[in-house]
Design a protein around this nucleic acid. Structure first.
Lengths: 253, 253
DNA sequence: CGTCCATTTGACCAAGCTCAACCGCCGTGG
DNA sequence: CCACGGCGGTTGAGCTTGGTCAAATGGACG
């Protein structure tokens, strides 16, 4: 838990995110907060969990960015997803007792621990919350399908454009307001590993997008100049803004 | 439900698959069977659901193969996943009220319908089953990460090899026994759309694998000649064989 | 026997990769 | 205070993998 919690004040980023989608009962809120244990800090670039390491807990991102990745035999790397505040991460360890992916901090991070056993308890006693977690997992799975589609069937410019649009859309969920400028803590090598491109080609693609007036860069600050145009160009769909919860049953007694 | 169910006889493929991972109580078993509604047949090549079509239910594959895919602006297609008996599909409709992907029968199929509302009820009343569904979703998400990695960072031979290994591994869950020969109902164009390759290059890659003695083909019957070799060659990991359930709480009451 | 569709093959093309060098910024140590 | 080293970004030259276009083959089925 974050600490003794007079409802509404300084809750876990997970609880805050969930109540963004669904009004939680006091009991559900308390159960969620109680499931989380001590916090950990991870400095930018440091690993939180290494692939194939035994693990019995998940993590909730409270602050900062991380990514999950895998290393290949030949030294290559694929970045699978980025994780933002409010995300429940390390989910692959639910299905097995070892981590399937490496979790690495992109910026300085704060995460809190959520033991699998606590999650199991949560599913058993607050099934509605379980259902909501399932829905969020489904949405994230679709977001990953979008990345798969981009890598499988789009050229470099479209891949990069969808990534930038996706990051912006996800940040808006947490930040609330209207954002069109983002501070990218990623290196071009990171972006390449996420998009299935080399860092050299990521660089050329960035410059090409600038030349075409799609984006403007200033250091790692990046501004999307024509978002509707990019959305049309890539067929991007925002998977983060809304999630249906109408199918969850009304509160039990 | 399939029909009135004296436990153990002719249950839904979903119930059978779940009990492969976890011993279900009689109540859980009954609730699962009751959640499913009428069955539908879909002929090979026919769509079951079209992307962006409004939908309020999921489907359980009872028999046959399907795939989920998206179409691109330029006419291209990306196949995201294949679905086999025992799979709960159309999960993207949980997060929204319309389908995110198109579901198409690869072979002649039987599916049964599972309304979202029933799923919600299942989560609320049988949280342990909800947790198991969550674990399976997590495993499938990792399997999709593997495909992402293959498309993003591997060459054509490795991509095709991992796909063949993955299909074989998944079929073993349902079929039980030791399989090294599979009947592929997919065209080479389908395989290309799943791997981010053109059908022409899929063909060349198949021939190259034959030439190297990795596989043997006879019509659409395909035999993997050196499975350990291929596993080593690709770094393949079987994501289907086992799923941890130890974190789920013991039965309530 | 003809039609349709999947598979196969060839010739040529191009997006993105590799290798290599260079730049610019920043933190560190002398 | 400045020199040095390292990392990320930038750019060029040449190459490779896989794409494109087009045509031929072959099997299944009415």
């Amino acid at each position: 838990m974050m600490f003794a919690n007079p409802l509404g004040i300084r809750r876990s980023a997970l609880t805050r995110r969930l109540s963004h989608y669904l009004t939680l009962t006091e009991a559900e809120d308390r159960a969620l907060e109680a499931a989380e244990e001590r916090e950990r800090r991870v400095a930018a670039g440091e690993p939180l969990v290494e692939a194939s390491q035994p693990i019995d807990r998940l993590f909730v991102v409270q602050h900062g960015w991380l990514h999950s990745s895998v290393r290949l035999r030949d030294g290559g790397r694929q970045i699978l997803r980025f994780h933002y505040p409010g995300d429940l991460i390390g989910v692959s360890s639910i299905a097995w007792s070892q981590a399937a992916t490496t979790l690495t901090a992109v910026s300085d991070c704060i995460v809190s621990e959520l033991p699998k056993v606590q999650l199991g308890r949560l599913f058993a006693t607050h099934g509605r919350v379980g259902g909501l977690l399932y829905a969020i997992a489904a949405a994230e799975s679709v977001a990953m399908s979008d990345r798969l589609t981009a890598i499988g069937r789009m050229n470099a410019i479209q891949r990069l454009a969808t990534l930038l649009l996706d990051i912006t859309a996800r940040l808006r969920v947490t930040a609330g307001g209207v954002i069109d400028t983002i501070e990218l803590p990623l290196t071009q090598a990171d972006i390449g590993d996420a998009l299935g491109l080399t860092k050299v080609h990521v660089n050329r693609t960035f410059r090409e997008m600038e030349k075409r007036g799609m984006i403007a860069r200033n250091g790692r600050r990046l501004k999307i100049l024509d978002e509707p145009g990019l959305i049309d160009f890539t067929g991007f769909v925002d998977r983060h803004a809304v999630i249906a919860t109408d199918w969850l049953p009304p509160l039990l007694g």
